[in-house]
């Protein structure tokens, strides 16, 4: 599976707001009403296309509980996008957004794109947080905002893809340092390069390897020609 870019996302927010359900809806297109508590971190991945380019989203779904905070903090590293999720039927999950945002800003790269998500939009009758409040919070803190329903799949696709579009635009504008936040992989060697890319100096192995590769091809073909 070749891809041009690999974007790492992290999903954060209070426990029970539907982080894992959003991920499951996005990767598997299904909803699981009773979801086990996420402990530590879980992963999901999906390929999307933006501007004709294949992009692999690698999504880290974290545990919302306070007791896991010190571990999840270490998972912001390398994330190009974050989905900050609250539950529109529980005001306290909205009230905690500031703390989450502080955490995210402190432990991630300043260019990380943050998408604020008010989840469970299908439960209109139990709504405690108005859509306008979410919009206002997003405006105030420079986030993108969407209300979603992991149950009905409403806006789920859009939430993940719009975040990717934003990241992609930042790359085009040169805002993102491509070597650190997003991993650019030459098409056919994406798997091969992946491990090397994770090292602390991601760009050099890529160049070295491609150089080595070209030389190999050259040397290999020389005697034959």
């Amino acid at each position: 599976m070749a891809y041009a870019y690999l974007f790492k996302y992290i999903i954060i927010g209070d426990t029970g707001v539907g982080k894992s359900c959003l991920l499951l809806q996005f990767t598997d297109k299904r909803f699981q009403p009773v979801h086990d508590l996420t402990i530590g971190v879980e992963f999901g991945a999906r390929m999307i296309t933006i501007d004709g380019k294949q992009i692999k989203l690698q999504i880290w779904d974290t545990a919302g509980q306070e007791s896991f905070r010190s571990i999840t903090r270490s998972y912001y590293r390398g994330a190009a996008g974050a989905l900050l999720v609250y539950d529109i039927t529980r005001r306290d999950t909205f009230n905690h957004l500031t703390t989450w945002l502080e955490d995210a800003r402190q432990h991630s790269n300043s260019n990380m794109v943050i998408m604020l998500i008010g989840n469970k939009s299908d439960l209109e009758s139990r709504r405690e947080v108005k859509k306008e409040e979410g919009e206002a919070f997003a405006r105030e803190h420079g986030l993108i905002f969407m209300e979603t329903s992991a149950k009905t799949a409403s806006n789920v696709e859009e939430a993940f893809i719009n975040t990717a579009k934003e990241i992609y635009e930042k790359i085009q504008e040169g805002v993102f340092d491509i070597n650190n936040e997003v991993r650019h992989t030459s098409l056919c060697f994406s798997f091969l390069l992946k491990p090397l890319h994770s090292s602390s100096v991601p760009v050099f192995p890529l160049f070295l390897l491609s150089v080595v590769f070209q030389q190999c091809v050259w040397f290999a073909t020389l005697p034959l020609s």
Binding site: D36, L37, T38, I39, G40, V41, E42, F43, G44, A45, Q58, W60, I71, S74, Y75, R77, G78, K194, P195, S198, S199, S200
Partner: peptide, 21 residues
């Protein structure tokens, strides 16, 4: 396979544990 790929992130080094299920 995707999860294995994520778990091999040398910069973030996620701690992989037994799932709750």
């Amino acid at each position: 396979p995707d999860e294995i790929e994520c778990s091999a992130d040398h910069t973030t080094r996620p701690i992989v544990i037994l799932r709750e299920t």
